[in-house]
Design a protein around this nucleic acid. Sequence first.
DNA 1: TATAAACTGAACTACATGGTTCAGTATCTA
DNA 2: TAGATACTGAACCATGTAGTTCAGTTTATA
Lengths: 115, 115
Amino acid sequence: MVQYLGPSLDLSFAALSDATRRGIIDQLGRGDASVTSLADKFQMTLTGMKKHIQVLERAGLVVTQKVGRVRTCKLGKRGLQAEAEWIEAHRKLFEARFEALDEIIGEMNQEGSDD
Amino acid sequence: MVQYLGPSLDLSFAALSDATRRGIIDQLGRGDASVTSLADKFQMTLTGMKKHIQVLERAGLVVTQKVGRVRTCKLGKRGLQAEAEWIEAHRKLFEARFEALDEIIGEMNQEGSDD
DNA sequence: TATAAACTGAACTACATGGTTCAGTATCTA
DNA sequence: TAGATACTGAACCATGTAGTTCAGTTTATA
């Protein structure tokens, strides 16, 4: 458990660190969408939206396909499995750590000088 | 579900997008640590490590306390709950989307020109 | 076939990141 | 009390992000 999963977590967590991009994923969960329709929905220039989509594509979270003049975006089949696993494993780590720390009653900001 | 969770997801996902910082969380899961010991472990200057820790602190994932000349780092009690919820909700979204798409057999790269 | 729609790419701005060095300050310890 | 240890802050560098504008190209459509 808690295995090393390579550089893809860097890309996907970075992709998820922006509210617009999380919104795009949300939106694509409701149906595929063109770059233009996403740009409209998020009140952004086409070029700006394209960049967000490229970030999501590099992370494998979104795939796109151009037919005629329209590029359609949809959720990538890679999904959020690896991310869910990392988060879940470490969420448990946090919890385990606090159970261990519960022995110490005084919540440390009593006896030391903090910054 | 899939609720808007505010700007903290920006900070925490950004914090998690760096392998060194994920390593720090991993390490702190095994026990509290000083800035110096972490800098040694990750082969980095003290100043560099301090910056990583500041990113983790701003995200609420790590808390620190200075006693004497030593600053000790430990996992923040905020944990990864919100992140786990977002990821899990959207992981399901991905899956649901693919079930819906399974009706379409030809995996789209047959009939359109891709980039 | 002329025009509009949809995208693409280059270039630019402002700011954040990930790292460094160097020069401190504060605190132990011999 | 002198020196070592642990951190802190400023400053710098190269690169990436988030967004823009502007000038194309390609594809539909009237």
